[in-house]
Amino acid sequence: MTLQQLAYFVALADVRSFTGAADSLRVAQPTLSRQVKALEDELGAPLVQRTRGAVTLTSAGEAVLPLARRMLADMESVRVAVAELVGLQRGRVRVGATPSLCIGVLADVLRVFHERFPAIRLELAENGSHLLARSLLRNEIDIAVLTVPAGGLDAGLELTPLLRERLSVASPASGNAPTSRGAMTVKELARRPLVVPRRGYDLREVTLQAYADAGVTPRFAVEGGEMDAVLRLVEAGTGVAVVPDLVFAGRPRLRRTALNPPLYRTVALARRADLTQSQAVQAFCDTLMEFLGELSAAGGFVGDVQVLGQPSG
């Protein structure tokens, strides 16, 4: 059994296609097929069922897959550890974050970290929280700054709460205020055209659940798009949107109106519980917490944002 065979099997399990897995690994399909067959021969059981147009995992394949992912992740950890011993000249931190957090604070954190550790390569992945959690479990990213859904995330992840953040209504600053009281209810919000992000955003689900809890139906102006597109649509006067308070910083064309009763979300730092994080990843966590602490102390947050925790080493 070789690590290369395990890598081929994991790629095949992810793509469920010999052609697609071979393309993703940039190897010939016969090579991939031979290596997977050799792994099956070594283990004494078929790992995949080969049917026309589809590949499915056998019960043995289902059992082997998480172990193979762990072995490949450990191999990567060894490489990172050796790179750090020679001075972090080849270090890497793969960060995942939701689009609203990229807009709100992470861009500044990435800048500060790069200035301090220019030899460490930074890779950024934007996605919804559930997809980021999946990427962590597949070892596609090292850490993720995400929102914690009401139902929680996978038990294989370790979460460190970072922020408690209020959700507010964004409207164009050039127009009339949505209310003269400085706050509004969801029922009042339902009278206005609403802009919501694409499916897969936790923020979309929270917003629609708030409407359902209030017994009202949203009047959609535009559905879909990333967070930056939602904010631009609001600035243009297309409608209003429920967004986290962090995104109002540096957006003078947006007016913030609080919701009453309030809606909050928890922002956390997530990582795999079964992996020891590298010094480079720990340095990034420290930079992130330092930045959040300094921003809070300087009163730099817009709206209702509270710093919660400190990642452990």
Rank of each mutant, 00 (worst) to 15 (best):
V93R: 01
H130D: 11
E140C: 07
A83T: 15
A97M: 13
E84H: 12
H114E: 02
H114P: 04
L101W: 02
I103F: 11
T147I: 08
P149C: 06
L85W: 14
V86I: 11
R92I: 14
A107P: 12
N127L: 15
S135L: 03
L131V: 09
N139P: 14
I103N: 06
E84A: 14
A97Q: 09
L124E: 06
P99H: 06
L122C: 10
L124M: 15
S135F: 14
L131W: 15
S135N: 11
L131H: 11
A107H: 07
N127S: 12
A83Q: 14
T147W: 01
T98S: 09
R116H: 05
H114L: 06
A107F: 15
R111H: 08
L136R: 05
V86S: 07
V112S: 05
L106P: 01
I141H: 00
P118L: 01
I120R: 00
L106V: 04
T98C: 13
A144F: 00
A125W: 13
N127K: 01
R121I: 14
G128L: 03
P149G: 13
E126Y: 10
V95P: 00
E140F: 06
L122V: 06
P118R: 15
E84R: 10
P118H: 08
T98K: 06
H130F: 05
A144T: 04
V109H: 01
S135Y: 08
L131A: 15
E123M: 14
L85P: 11
F117Q: 11
L101V: 12
F117A: 13
H130Q: 14
N139K: 10
L132M: 14
R121K: 10
F113T: 05
E84M: 04
T98L: 07
A83C: 15
C102S: 13
C102P: 03
V93A: 11
V93P: 02
S129E: 08
L85V: 04
H114D: 11
R90C: 11
L88I: 12
L124C: 06
V148N: 07
S129D: 10
L88D: 10
G96I: 01
R94L: 04
G87D: 13
R94Q: 12
L101S: 01
G104E: 05
V93E: 00
R116P: 04
R116N: 12
S135C: 03
P149K: 00
E140K: 07
G91L: 03
L137K: 15
A119R: 13
L122K: 09
H114S: 08
L122P: 05
A97T: 05
H114Q: 10
P118A: 12
H130R: 11
I103T: 11
T147P: 09
D108W: 03
V148W: 14
T147Q: 02
L122E: 12
V105K: 04
P118K: 01
R94G: 00
L131K: 07
R111N: 09
L124K: 00
G91S: 09
V95T: 00
G96W: 01
S100W: 03
E84Q: 07
A97Y: 02
L85R: 08
S129M: 02
E126C: 13
V148Y: 07
R92V: 08
G104I: 02
V105C: 05
F117K: 06
G104C: 05
V145L: 05
R116A: 11
V105Y: 13
R116Q: 12
R90L: 10
E126D: 08
